[in-house]
């Protein structure tokens, strides 16, 4: 009887010791932290803020949980491990989303700058061949000065692109393109009007 009691006590003591001496999941912490650092490097806080916040909050919750368990006599890190796995998974998603989102923004901005450049060149070409008359002289002078301003703004859009502010670069370049296209359209319209008048005069 005494022997049985001793065995039970020994097993119980062993179990208690195993639970009480459970180690914090340091490897899981490091793995999750590494994934989170990778997401930060990919600027996920800017380009995939929702995914990054989910990862960051899971990491914080995991750390809180580890601290709470560390303070207990009977430790259980299962929940902390779950949270760390979640943090790692979300951080990985955030990295991928950030890279994709940034790449797309870069492509869009690049395309907008190229389109804007073309629109300015078209406007300049139209301006060069525009007929100078008493009626058109003022407009032409204004367009020339406008095109110079547009070139300046496009330069700023390029600077924004270089500093990876793709959203600003896109918006700025698109607006410049609209203005340049509008100038080219007006010049084209004036040219057509002028050729119409010339044809009418020849008929008369």
């Amino acid at each position: 009887m005494n022997r049985r009691i001793n065995i039970i006590a020994a097993v119980a003591l062993g179990l208690v010791a195993a639970v009480a001496c459970a180690q914090a999941p340091q490897e899981d912490v490091s793995a999750a932290q590494a994934e989170l650092d990778k997401a930060k490097q990919a600027q996920a806080d800017t380009w995939a803020p929702n995914e990054f916040q989910a990862a960051d909050q899971a990491m914080r919750a995991a750390q809180d949980e580890i601290q709470a368990q560390n303070a207990k006599w009977m430790k259980n890190y299962d929940k902390a491990k779950e949270l760390l796995a979640k943090a790692k998974e979300e951080a990985s998603k955030a990295s991928q989303a950030a890279v994709a989102s940034k790449e797309q923004a870069k492509k869009d901005a690049e395309a907008a700058i190229a389109a804007s450049d073309t629109a300015i060149q078209t406007a300049e070409a139209s301006l060069k061949v525009a007929p100078v008359t008493k009626d058109s002289k003022a407009d032409l002078a204004l367009y020339k000065s406008d095109i110079e301003t547009l070139k300046g703004t496009l330069g700023q859009a390029r600077q924004a692109f270089t500093s990876e502010d793709y959203k600003r670069a896109l918006e700025s370049a698109s607006s410049v393109k609209d203005k340049a296209t509008s100038i080219a359209d007006k010049l084209e319209e004036a040219k057509k009007k002028r050729s119409g008048q010339a044809a009418k005069a020849r008929k008369a």
């Binding site: 899971a58 914080r60 929940k79 779950e82 979640k86």
Partner: peptide, 13 residues
């Protein structure tokens, strides 16, 4: 986000 992560972890456990 924090509350959802904790709830999901508890459900998994």
């Amino acid at each position: 986000h924090s509350a959802l992560a904790r709830a999901e972890a508890e459900v998994h456990v």
